[in-house]
Structures are given as C-alpha cells and as structure tokens.
Design a protein around this nucleic acid. Structure first.
Lengths: 150, 150
DNA sequence: CTGTATCCTTTAAGATACTG
DNA sequence: CAGTATCTTAAAGGATACAG
C-alpha cells in the first residue's frame, strides 16, 4: 500500500492532485487533509519523526539531545500531538527514575517514507533554491524573508 | 540499536534518511534543508502550489478565489516567498487594469510531485488518524489540540 | 528522568483602508 | 486588478521554576 516509493513516480499524479484538491477545498479549512498537512509539516514534528525513524526507540532525553535546539516544552508538545495522531507510541516504565520510550507506529513509518522523500527533494534542490533567493534579493534590493511585508 | 526502518525499505530510503539527518543537524537550525522543509510545509504555500499545478497559469485574484479562506495579504506574502525561492514565476502585463500571472517553474513542478504524494498519504490515512485522535481523547479525557499545554 | 505550570516575547496572520 | 500599509489579535514558542 504505502511501501511503493517507486510507483508513485509514474502513476496518476494528476488524479491524485484532483482528489486532494477536492478534499482540501470542500469544506474550507476544517477538512482533515488540510489539518494533517499542517500538523506534519511543522519543523519539530518532522525532525522528531526523522530521528525516531533512524534510531528505532528513544527515551525522552535521548530524543531531546538529537533534535538540536528543541526545548523541553516543545518536545513534550510535539510528542503528545504525534501520539494523539497515532504516529508514535509512548511507553512508560514504572521505575525510579522514570523511563519513557517513544517509537514510530506503522502509520508513523509510512509517513516517514513520505517526508524522507520531501527531505531528499530539499536536499537535492537546495542549491537551486539558494541561487534563486540570491537572484531575487539582488533584483529586489531588499529581503522579504519570512513573512511580514511591512 | 534497532533499525525499524529496514522493514519496509527497498531502495535507499535508509541512505536518504542518513543524508538528511546529517545535513539537518549539522548546523543546528540554519541549514537550508530545515529552512526549506519549513517553508514548503506551510498551509498557504502548499495550497497555492496545488492550485497552480492544477490550473497551470492563474492571475492573482483567480488564485485567491481558489485558495479558500486566504487573505489578500497572505496570498501576496506566500507568492513573494515562492517567487523568491524559484517555485513560481510572476509575470506582470503593463495594462490597465494590471494583469499579473503566476505559474509554477520546473523546480516548482518537481516540488509539486512531492507534496502531492504527501497529500495523497494524508488523504489515504485520514481515517486512521481521526480514529487515533478519538481513542487518545477518550483515554485522556481532554483535548490537547494544537499546542499550548497550559 | 520526564514531565507541568507560568510567564513573557516574538511571530503569524486577519481586517481594514488606501494606491497606482 | 493587484497590490501596500497599518493596526490589532491570536498563536507559537522560549525560559524558568517546580513536581512526581
């Protein structure tokens, strides 16, 4: 079902797009597809999924060490949301000091495949993007970095 | 350390992940891969790319009509950023009233393929995710919806 | 060790009014 | 038509202190 990294290159990309657009715009903002895309596109979720996919099982602080720059609060929030969505499992061992282990579910691993492809794309095209940014900034003479157009 | 990813791996998914992790954590936060993942994962960018991919060429207000709920300001900001990154082209026709047409670049179309796959994944797994959320919320007795853990 | 709770600052983004 | 500019609110996220 989702293991085919190969055949989504040639399949019916067009049909998939039509289907997504139908789902995504049908109820303006509340649809699950939008919701899911937004959720899985945040920085900390992506990085956490990468690291759990790489390591298999990680304790809270092990994961925290790997996800460079994440605060304790954001790791907690991120993991709760991923757990809620069925992407990771959380196992608590009643020891002192407590041990809590996280790992990807099957669903999480199938998502991982998708975001690896996206990350791979980013990796392979980063030079093109950086060059495009330079050209644009040279043309415009100013930087429109992230958002505010003020 | 176990490698659960091996289970479904056929090509070089594992290698891709290693490469991404190397890139992504090497300079903690400023690397282009992180930057790019964050940029292309925001809601309005994704939806704009979908619609431009579907329609081919769209004027500002045509696109605005299709991307349900987007404000004028956010469409402007989104399109500027996509233009800057080399994902869309912006062509201005010196007419009155002005006409401005947007379309995906080759780079943009190659990105489109990736996010279609992600959208397709979301579409195919939305039921699983919704069910997981219900189970979690029933277990926890409260909703941890988006972020604040207060 | 694995969190929670609070406070506080920054950023995102909607609404509205105005312009070439 | 296709934006800009400005104002304001909402949300994200960091820092710190504390708890089981």
């Amino acid at each position: 079902m989702e293991r085919t990294i190969v055949d989504y290159q040639e399949g019916s990309v067009q049909e998939k797009l039509q289907k997504i657009l139908g789902d995504v715009e049908e109820d303006g903002g509340t649809c699950p597809i939008r919701n899911i895309l937004v959720r899985f596109s945040d920085k900390w979720s992506t990085l956490s999924i990468f690291h759990l996919g790489d390591a298999g099982t990680l304790r809270f602080n092990e994961l925290k060490k790997r996800v460079d720059g994440i605060s304790q609060r954001m790791l907690t929030v991120t993991l709760r949301n991923l757990e809620r969505d069925g992407i990771v499992t959380r196992r608590v061992y009643p020891e002192i000091p407590p041990r809590v282990e996280y790992q990807l579910t099957d669903l999480g691993r199938s998502l991982l495949v998708q975001i690896i492809e996206l990350g791979d794309w980013a990796s392979n095209h980063s030079n093109q993007i950086i060059e495009a940014r330079s050209r644009f900034d040279a043309r415009e003479g100013r930087v429109i970095d992230s958002v505010s157009l003020n």
